[in-house]
Structures are given as structure tokens and as C-alpha cells.
């Protein structure tokens, strides 16, 4: 049994080639958000302040010197308080953010399972929105055409798929989003507290789908505040605290430690 420890120096020597068993490897990554000291809303104000040399920035380190590894086929849980840097970590893995310092390597196709409802257009039909959303997730037209049926099937929206999206309820929209995002057969699935969508029956179906992904050998990184779910779904877990890795170990150990803290 590996006892949970603070990150040691084991990770500081970067292995040059990524072992085939590694899905994600993060080496000494720091992410810095740089924000203007006061929020500057307008371009005019920005230019005036820049000319006067009044542009003060504050740095915020969302992740500090984080090293970790996600092995292929494992389900890794990430726990931590609000603002601990969990979502930031997933954004790194999704290539949305680039690390300010350090190095990240990712093997295979990554699918972030999050609410991409922002990509929907209310005037278009569900059908048309599937094509738009699939394209945003990097699918080609041919791939979406091939998956169309199973997406509509899973979302249980066959009857209204030709109606404009503005006639859908928010739960129906969330279902459509989930159905599109999980129909991609990724190598790595990133889940950031999304499982609270839809009604109870649909949530159970989502959990079932995630279990199927796990059983099919998909690598999963799961961020959740639901300790019950972390225990149930994850093998290993990492505890983030204020941007640092506070502990790492089996899901049971970490959940116990974290719940006590």
C-alpha cells in the first residue's frame, strides 16, 4: 500500500519518453492567472492607464509545482475545496490552458465532459445543434452523421429533435449536451462535476455510461465534491489544496483524509 504523501522529489527528474502505460503526465506545473489589479472594462480606460503606467497586475497561482501521473485505464479522482485548482488541472489536460511553467504530456484523444451548452444555438433544431456541437468538439461531419442516431437515442429526444432548441427545457438541453459529449469514444475522459444534470433517471443513465467507459478501459479523470461517488468510481485519488498536491493514494485513503481535514 502506498501511503498518501506530499509530492516528493521522485517527479522532478523528467523522464524523457512517456511510458506507454501513462495517459497523462504532469511535471512541476504551475499555472498563473495574471489579472489587472482593478477590473478594467473598457478599451479607453485600458489605453489611458497603460499610457500613465498605471496597469498593475496581480498574479494568482492556481497550481503550484504540481506533478502527477494518470495511468492508462485508471479512474482518478480529484478532490479539494472550492478554488483548489481542480478545474484548472482539467483545463490543462484538455489543452484549454497552457502551463505557465512545467510540462504536460497527454497520450491519446481527450474529451472533456462538461456542459458545452454555450455552444448551442436557440433558433436551430436539436438536429442542427448536434452538428454544430459535435464540430466544436472536433468531430468531422461524417463522424457526427454516423453517431447521430445513437446521440438522439441516448438523449431520449427523438420526438422533438426537429424542433428549435428554444422550445426545450433546460434538462433536455443538458441531456443533449451530455449525449453528444459522451458519444466520442475518447481515450481520456475528463469529468468536472457534470453529473448533476437531468432528472434522476437520466443521472443514473449517465453514471451507467461512465461505468461502461471505465469497464471498456477508458482513462477517466473525475473532479467531484461527492465523496460517495469518488469512493465508488475511482481507484486512485489526488487531493489538491490551494494549488498544491496535498495527498495522493487510493480513493478510500484520500477520501478519509480529506473528509477529516
Amino acid at each position: 500500500m502506498k501511503s498518501p504523501t506530499a509530492p516528493d522529489n521522485r517527479n522532478t527528474t523528467e523522464t524523457e519518453t512517456l511510458s506507454p502505460d501513462t495517459a497523462i503526465r504532469i511535471d512541476r506545473v504551475t499555472v498563473r492567472y495574471r489579472l489587472p489589479h482593478e477590473r478594467i472594462h473598457t478599451f479607453k480606460e485600458y489605453v489611458i492607464r497603460m499610457l500613465r503606467g498605471q496597469l498593475r497586475m496581480i498574479d494568482h497561482l492556481a497550481l503550484r509545482d504540481v506533478s502527477m501521473e494518470v495511468r492508462r485505464g485508471e479512474v482518478l479522482g480529484i478532490v479539494g475545496r472550492n478554488g483548489a485548482g481542480k478545474s484548472t488541472l482539467l483545463k490543462l489536460a484538455a489543452r484549454v490552458l497552457q502551463p505557465t511553467e512545467g510540462r504536460i504530456r497527454i497520450r491519446g484523444r481527450v474529451a472533456p465532459l462538461l456542459d458545452v451548452g454555450g455552444g448551442f444555438h436557440p433558433e436551430l433544431t436539436g438536429h442542427e445543434n448536434i452538428f454544430l456541437n459535435g464540430a466544436l468538439l472536433g468531430l468531422s461531419r461524417a463522424e457526427i452523421t454516423r453517431r447521430l442516431d445513437s446521440i438522439v437515442e441516448f438523449a431520449e429526444l427523438r420526438d422533438c429533435i426537429e424542433s428549435p432548441l428554444r422550445t426545450y427545457s433546460s434538462g433536455m438541453i443538458a441531456r443533449l449536451g451530455f449525449a453528444i459529449a459522451t458519444d466520442v469514444e475518447p481515450d481520456i475522459l475528463l469529468i468536472d462535476e457534470i453529473l448533476a444534470v437531468g432528472d434522476e433517471k437520466f443521472r443514473a443513465k449517465c453514471a451507467g455510461r461512465i461505468r461502461r467507459f471505465r469497464d471498456a478501459g477508458t482513462t477517466i479523470v473525475l473532479v467531484s465534491h461527492d465523496m460517495h461517488m469518488v469512493r465508488e468510481l475511482c481507484g486512485r485519488a489526488v487531493w489538491l489544496n490551494k494549488g498544491r498536491v496535498e495527498g495522493e493514494g487510493t480513493a478510500d485513503e484520500i477520501v478519509t483524509l480529506y473528509s477529516r481535514a
Binding site: L18, R95, Q98, P99, G102, R103, I104, R105, I106, R107, G108, R109, V110, D187
Partner: peptide
């Protein structure tokens, strides 16, 4: 395409 073996490396 991204295949299971494609490696993205930020470095």
C-alpha cells in the same frame, strides 16, 4: 487524427 498513441507535449 489523434490516435491512442498520439502524444501532446507542452514542451
Amino acid at each position: 487524427p489523434e490516435t491512442a498513441q498520439t502524444v501532446f507535449d507542452s514542451a
